[in-house]
Design a protein around this nucleic acid. Structure first.
Lengths: 111, 111
DNA sequence: CAGTATCCAAGCGGATACTG
DNA sequence: CAGTATCCGCTTGGATACTG
């Protein structure tokens, strides 16, 4: 899987950030994990009706490999999982909340 | 051109923000326009060596149609253009600077 | 419940050549 | 200089079916 979308030209830290959160649904996932602290797989799905199960799975996997989120598996029947932010992931909170703020204002303008 | 990537589920303003800035190079363009106030086409190209002329053109066009940037054309020979943020575009500054900040810290961790 | 595997279509995006 | 037009390969991502 190609993870070198941006070559991160020196002098542009924004590209480094994009490297981590620019996946189609990543910042939305992080947003929901900020709000709810932890979420199960199907719970996330309901919060993001336009994201397919396949895509959700892929995005979660990349976020995990970038150490932004953690996954806890409870070996029960039926199986149960829980996704939550890591310490690194939590440092994205101010950024994601800025996205929320801007989106709110933008929606006010356009309704 | 399909602009309805996200259906902007109610309750998730982050999706609205993504609708505007999630293009592959958009936040990088905005970042440079924040820093330099105005930029010419080739100037932006040099700042973003990994973005092709074609992509740069497309992203600028979308940002303009979303009223995030403006374009001034000087009818000289050779032709000269200048891109700058609109008032709406400037409201993205806190968000983009958060991206810069996070990228900076992330780069420090990983070098 | 929480995923993975396979298949396949659409469109993203690079390379190249051309224009005002 | 500042783009646009055309071609085309490759990835993205949906649909569907299957698994522990």
């Amino acid at each position: 899987m190609p993870r070198h979308i941006y070559n991160c030209s020196e002098g542009c830290p924004v590209e480094s950030t994009l490297q981590i959160i620019s996946g189609k649904w990543k910042s939305v996932i992080i947003y929901h994990l900020i709000k709810k602290k932890h979420c199960r797989f199907n719970e996330l799905q309901k919060l993001m009706p336009n994201c397919s199960r396949r895509m959700l799975s892929l995005q979660l996997k990349e976020l995990k490999s970038d150490q932004i989120i953690d996954k806890t598996i409870f070996p029960t029947v039926p199986p149960k999982t829980s996704y939550q932010l890591t310490a690194l992931g939590e440092t994205l909170t101010p950024l994601i909340l800025e996205m929320e703020k801007w989106g709110d204002k933008y929606n006010q303008l356009h309704e």
